[in-house]
């Protein structure tokens, strides 16, 4: 299946400025498995932005699947569906 992955701001520093890409994944791939794939692809810096030293989800990073923000670590077991959009972002701000 194909999903769209978007990287915002500081996450683009890890992806060498790739802002968005289509990835082909196996059926039933979960979000945590996607993160592992991206860590393998872009390095441990990617993962470090997502988790605290205690391996908890960093509240200052947003993981959004379609329009739904994942806030708890167990939500990373969410199975992805074809054509899902997954965003990795620092907190959204407006203005300036």
């Amino acid at each position: 299946m194909t999903v769209t992955v978007k990287y915002f701001a500081t996450f683009c520093l890890e992806t060498n400025f790739t802002q968005q890409e289509e990835l082909t994944l196996e059926e039933n791939t979960t979000v945590i498995e996607l993160i592992q794939l991206l860590t393998d692809k872009y390095g441990t810096g990617f993962e470090k932005r997502l988790f605290t030293a205690e391996k908890e989800l960093n509240p200052l990073c947003w993981i959004i699947v379609n329009q739904q923000r994942l806030k708890k670590k167990n939500e990373l077991n969410l199975k992805l569906n074809p054509e899902d959009t997954i965003s990795f972002s620092p907190p959204m701000i407006m203005g300036g």
Binding site: K6, F8, A9, T10, L13, Q19, L60, I64, S87, S89, P90, P91, M92, I93, M94, G95, G96
Partner: peptide, 24 residues
């Protein structure tokens, strides 16, 4: 501040895609 790296590296232009993503 948690947003220091964001502000210092990108400044306000990084808001562009955020505004897009929120639909604002």
């Amino acid at each position: 501040d948690p947003l220091y790296e964001f502000s210092s590296t990108f400044g306000t232009p990084a808001i562009m895609r955020m505004a897009q993503n929120l639909g604002f």
